[in-house]
Write a protein that binds this DNA or RNA. Sequence first.
DNA 1: GTTCGTTGTGTCCATGCCGATACAACGACG
DNA 2: CGTCGTTGTATCGGCATGGACACAACGAAC
Lengths: 259, 259
Amino acid sequence: MTTNGRDPADCGGGGDEAGDNGAAAFEASLVADGATFDARDAALLRAVAAAGSVSGAAAELGRSRARALSRLETLEAAFGDLVQRRRGGADGGGSRLTADARALLARFDRLTAALSGTAGAAESVFEGRVADREGELAVVDADAGSVRALAVGDPEPAAGDPVQVSVGADAVTLHDPAETPPADATSARNRFTGVATAVERGDAVVRVDVDVGAGGPLRALVTVDSADRLGLAAGSDVVASFKATATRVTAVDAGGRRE
Amino acid sequence: MTTNGRDPADCGGGGDEAGDNGAAAFEASLVADGATFDARDAALLRAVAAAGSVSGAAAELGRSRARALSRLETLEAAFGDLVQRRRGGADGGGSRLTADARALLARFDRLTAALSGTAGAAESVFEGRVADREGELAVVDADAGSVRALAVGDPEPAAGDPVQVSVGADAVTLHDPAETPPADATSARNRFTGVATAVERGDAVVRVDVDVGAGGPLRALVTVDSADRLGLAAGSDVVASFKATATRVTAVDAGGRRE
DNA sequence: GTTCGTTGTGTCCATGCCGATACAACGACG
DNA sequence: CGTCGTTGTATCGGCATGGACACAACGAAC
């Protein structure tokens, strides 16, 4: 699935870098026992459900019935029975989805929706160096201050390494500065005081850029209702917070070997 | 990239449904002008940076040098100059990455890390019906109460439709019940009072299941530090919250046509 | 028993992608 | 000028994937 860097509910554009380096996209899949269930398979299952037969589904999709049946067999070897098939014509034959198939489709839809949200979310990028490592957690010294972030994956940055910390706008929570809870009372450990510089209202969501003293703005996505309750406008003082678990650290050394 | 439903920093397993329906996976890519930059392209650029030449990079990767050069030309037509090449041998020839290439790689790495986090995060699924729509926002009546969630994508559920609301554990914030901020003071609008039923400590993160009165637990991922500050243990009363913008709504009618 | 339209199985063919190979040109170095 | 190892360009062959087609078997409905 391709997004244009703009989830319908999100603000424009992917990365922060100068120049146009394309829209974020992904292909979602579920993998089991060497078989990969992808969007094409999901379309086949949906068509089977709608048409009531593999034959009708293949025709609807412009696909080979023989290949469709073969593909179903491969998927069923890995994921269990997906399509209950009965031979016979007129009203005697046909196919219907099993409960497992519906569950698989629902899970695939949720995965796709979640990945679409992630790919389409405006990201904020903190650049800095790793000051400390605690297991998967890294403390990164950035221009805006210290950022606690998850450093998982390969290669794992070590202390001193230059890194980028990325957080999606949908993971950033905004607070009224006068009523921000004490640090002990919540698990959202990264918090920055700043000024809202851009407040862009959509149908149901508001895109906010918060100047937190770093090179680029920290971007947040909040509902219209939340923005109203916070009295958000350009120039408003706000406190922006996000959980360390909602961030990701990546090394910036392009030459590093990734296996 | 395939995950086993278990981000190194996250708790076990993907969906909530019974039965094993595989690990969430994805292929990340960046798309511009009809060209798609994917993991294989990223590997090529990294190898070029490491080897200092397209020739050496192709050999290192077991790939055709002719194809590699052709692929670079295709990518450069869409993304701009990526590799500065100079003919000549011994010390006269070779290739190096441009600044645009490094920026592209960094963005691809952040996208991959973010998608990996999403794919690997333990999800909580609320099942219910759409009570109200406000643009991209849906209010869903679920067992645990009313949930405000983003309903983007196709098809968009309408009022009355049965849906699932999915939220990743990395987006769920836990609060001390005694010090939870008033609803007006924060943009995290979904909040549920519950009891921590499972607290599983990892190196740097803690996986918490919170019983909020729905069928399944609401899962949260917090840092060890945050868990300590909250005094988290099985049996603790907590307040769990997440932003509407961090959720996604999907229709559950498997037969629905998706175009 | 016949009809209808399905499933099940097997085979053939086309297409796209990628690795391999070859030749020419280049340019720093000795 | 020769060497070395790179880039640039062109072509060939193999492999995997997927559509097409054919035939047999099936089973509800009439």
